[in-house]
Structures are given as structure tokens and as C-alpha cells.
Amino acid sequence: MATVRIPTPLRTYTQNQAEVKAAGKTVGEVLKALEGSAPGIGTRLFDEKGGLKRYVNVFHNDEDIRFLKDLETPVADSDTLSIIPAIAGG
């Protein structure tokens, strides 16, 4: 299973765990699998169309998945995904 790093504001969904394991062959599958151990977290990650919300960044190892294959990016068990809320604005 891949390792997923959870940012502080979302640790309320993971019993304060900074890292959780989740299964899946793609980033999308892994993030959706999080919902099993962290119910409710999906509503903070995904928009109504199933894409990542604008303020959510997911890094596959050290690259933003938006610059890879987005939610279809393949994931190996040894991989780490980091969910990092954007600090951005206008």
C-alpha cells in the first residue's frame, strides 16, 4: 500500500495521524481508498465532478500530479503521496 501524508488541517479525519496507508494502482484510487479509514475526507479533496479541488495539491513523490497524469498517475506500494493545501490567492 502507498503512504499518504496528511496535512494538519485534515488530520481530524485520520485520528491525528500524519501518515496513513491506502491501496490503489493510481493516485485517484489511493485517495478514494482513504475514505475507508478516514470517512469524510473525500469531501475536502474532490469537487462535484470528481476532480481535485483547486486548493488541494497532491505530490507523487516530489512532483505535483497535475504535471503527471493527474488522478490517473500510477502508484507503486513504495510511493509516497503528499496532500498539501495550497497557499495561494489573488
Binding site: 495539491n57 505530490f59 516530489d62 505535483d64 503528499s82 498539501i84 495550497a86 497557499i87 495561494a88 490567492g89 489573488g90
Partner: peptide, 11 residues
């Protein structure tokens, strides 16, 4: 008209 921090640098 916008900014966005490099999230890995940030963390």
C-alpha cells in the same frame, strides 16, 4: 494578479 507558493518548499 495571483500568487501560489511552491508547496514542497513551503512544507
Amino acid at each position: 494578479t495571483a500568487y501560489r507558493m511552491d508547496e514542497l518548499q513551503l512544507e
